[in-house]
């Protein structure tokens, strides 16, 4: 089963647009990444620019509002993710607990939906989506 581990680094919401992880932080994260890869469970991973360099698009009073970062209310924001394929939820949690964390960092473990998780009418509505995602990739 597939899980996404979402990295929610402490202070990422307030980090300046040009903030980059330190060499040490990258090194210890690479060790973790390698351990996932060596165990054969890693499918994909990415790190994200800070939210201050991002844009928020939301619906406010029926209108689409576009706002550039930084944002005022940003406690827990995603800094990166790992997509892993493991045999149980416990295995995903065990991996997450090995992630090198700084004080206040959080890794959120979320299972990826399978088609079987949906009733048939929802599955029907999702038809054709994979094809779109594929041609994009």
């Amino acid at each position: 089963m597939r899980f996404m581990m979402l990295m929610l680094p402490a202070g990422h919401g307030q980090a300046p647009p040009d903030a980059r992880p330190s060499k040490d932080a990258v090194e210890s994260m690479m060790r973790f990444n390698r351990s996932l890869q060596e165990a054969g469970v890693l499918l994909a991973l990415d790190g994200l620019h800070p939210p201050s360099a991002g844009v928020r698009v939301s619906l406010v009073n029926g209108k689409v509002k576009v706002a550039d970062g930084p944002f005022a209310e940003t406690k827990e924001v995603v800094g990166g993710y790992w997509m892993i394929d493991v045999s149980s939820r416990e295995e995903a949690v065990t991996w997450a607990s090995r992630c090198p964390l700084a004080a206040g960092d959080t890794v959120e473990v979320r299972q990826v939906f399978e088609a079987a998780d949906f009733p048939p009418e929802v599955r029907k509505a999702a038809e054709g989506f994979g094809e779109l995602g594929q041609s994009a990739g």
């Binding site: 499918l43 038809e127 054709g128 989506f129 994979g130 094809e131 594929q134 990739g137």
Partner: peptide, 13 residues
């Protein structure tokens, strides 16, 4: 087969 049900992540890999 309904090709929309093929897994794009595995194909990409």
């Amino acid at each position: 087969q309904d090709r929309s049900r093929w897994d794009p992540l595995l194909i990409r890999r």
